[in-house]
């Protein structure tokens, strides 16, 4: 997947990934795609829920060994 910016949240636990995600999205322009990489299992439900709440588009999620990549499009 193509993305404009990547955010490393590896090793972080709740609530840091969502706080960082929010900050990163704020600094981007509408239509741009953010790749976020995390290791906290909680992010698998938190990130889609946050996107729904804030109106940003949750594009997809890719699970690799021990880490998950999320793709989010800023509204």
């Amino acid at each position: 997947m193509n993305f404009d910016q990547s955010l490393d949240c590896k090793g972080l636990s709740c609530p840091m990934p969502i706080i960082k995600l929010s900050k990163a999205i704020k600094g981007m322009e509408a239509g741009q795609v953010l790749e976020m990489i995390g290791t906290d299992p909680g992010s698998k439900t938190d990130v889609p829920a946050w996107c729904e709440k804030t109106g940003n588009e949750f594009l997809s999620m890719e699970e690799l060994d021990g880490e998950t990549k999320f793709y989010i499009k800023k509204k």
Binding site: D8, K10, G11, K20, K23, D65, G66, E67
Partner: peptide
């Protein structure tokens, strides 16, 4: 405090992180 730290000292939650022994798919 956490939100202030994010703005004033973003380095606190940045830096080297490691993951060991993850489950394979």
């Amino acid at each position: 405090y956490i939100l202030w730290e994010m703005e004033a000292f973003p380095n606190v939650s940045m830096g080297k992180s490691y993951t060991f022994l993850p489950g394979t798919k």
